[in-house]
């Protein structure tokens, strides 16, 4: 009985090790590295919706962070690389675009830049923005 128990325990341990858990030191480091750049990626790209309110220094730092991230993502699998690099480059392009637009504006402005109107008044709840047209019954 004891021998059977020990055999069963040994078989379980062998199965556990062969399944790759706990992960080897190298695999653990790789997972940690991936977690690190993903966290940085999200911290950087989340700021696209604030781009217009960031200072030039902040935008420049974000561009630099994007450049560093690109190097880290380049070593990932093809699927991950394709998706995240595309997003990263889009984020970087937006930050660079805002910087460029500001420098163009301060240098004399873009003659073709369209006029901007003040934000519209908030519409009262329940009113329709378009003239209702009768729709055919579903």
């Amino acid at each position: 009985m004891k021998i059977k128990l020990w055999c069963a325990l040994g078989a379980l341990c062998a199965a556990w090790v062969l399944s790759g858990f706990p992960p080897s030191g190298g695999a653990r480091a790789q997972e940690q590295g991936q977690a690190d750049w993903r966290a940085e990626f999200e911290a950087v790209c989340v700021k696209t919706d604030l781009a217009m309110s960031l200072s030039n220094e902040e935008l420049t730092q974000l561009v630099a962070r994007c450049d560093r991230l690109e190097g880290q993502i380049a070593g990932e699998t093809e699927i991950v690389r394709k998706v995240y690099l595309k997003r990263l480059r889009s984020c970087r392009a937006l930050f660079a675009y805002v910087l460029e637009a500001r420098s163009a504006a301060s240098a004399g402005g873009d003659a073709a830049a369209p006029a901007q109107l003040p934000p519209p008044e908030p519409r009262p709840q329940g009113t329709e923005a378009t003239a209702p047209e009768s729709r055919p019954a579903p």
Partner: peptide, 8 residues
């Protein structure tokens, strides 16, 4: 997003 301007 605070940028809500209307462009003509």
């Amino acid at each position: 997003i605070g940028f809500a301007s209307t462009i003509l």
